[in-house]
Design a protein around this nucleic acid. Sequence first.
DNA 1: GCCCAGGAGTGTG
DNA 2: CACACTCATGGG
Length: 291
Amino acid sequence: MNVRLRIRHLDLDQTLGCGQTFRWSGAVPGTWSGPIGDCLVTLRREGQWLHSDSVPERRDLGRRVSTYLRTEDDIGRVHAELSKDPVMARGLGAVEGLRLVKMDEWECLISYVLATFANIPRITKMIGHLASRFGSPITDVMNSFPTIGQLGTASVGELRACGLGYRAEYVAGICRLVDDDRLAEMKRMPDDDLRAALLELPGVGNKVADCVSLFGFGRLGAFPIDVWVERALARLYGARGSYRALRDFAAERFGGNAGYAQEYLFYNERALSGSGGCVFTRPGGSSDRTP
DNA sequence: GCCCAGGAGTGTG
DNA sequence: CACACTCATGGG
């Protein structure tokens, strides 16, 4: 079964390769493949159409893809609102196809706890190990991300064997504190309550709580501040300070679109930093990339 | 071999 | 609240 969706603003390389999600592979040019729940999805862009296949076949594939890529988000409106900011206005054209994704809440929570103090290749590897050891088979070479129940059976030693290091105890702790009911409860919470609930979990601090709020629970006002975003805020806005101060700065500046703004800043600062392809610059002309 | 990683937890000033 | 220190491993 081949499902096709019409979607205007979508660059698969940017969206699935920028580092907001960890299990997608774009090894075949123009084609991206990765798990959504219990099936392995292949995406291919042809003009204005996005073609989707899955193994095994799923009747709700179109809905799954649509949800995952947040096709309901009005990117045009987001850009129109963000372009009131002079810094954003200069570079939005280069990130028109960079979309936020809507990950599974549980997968997102664990993934970003693993992401602390690790680089992306290693994060990918840790998640792959967890999936192959505790997840359910989707294909010969791909397992689903472990459910709460599946991951809950793992001992700290087994988690360490998956390369988690000290994060093993965080994951084990989270498995003891979170179940499906708690997750459902968290989905219904207002943004601030959700954030507080996430912060109660071991291994979850400010940054992870905001990542999970944004990429997992779809709270588009969340603004995760990692080293790259912190760098971008300092370079482009001259904004420095505590996490709280920078978060307030972003909330005031970007409002309900802070999540998209964060992704644009992150992408610009990290993915383009080595290539000299800076798109966002300070008003006034000079790229300010030179020291 | 060496340096560092999409930080968080804990203790101290 | 701001800082320093530590945390277990594997990529680059």
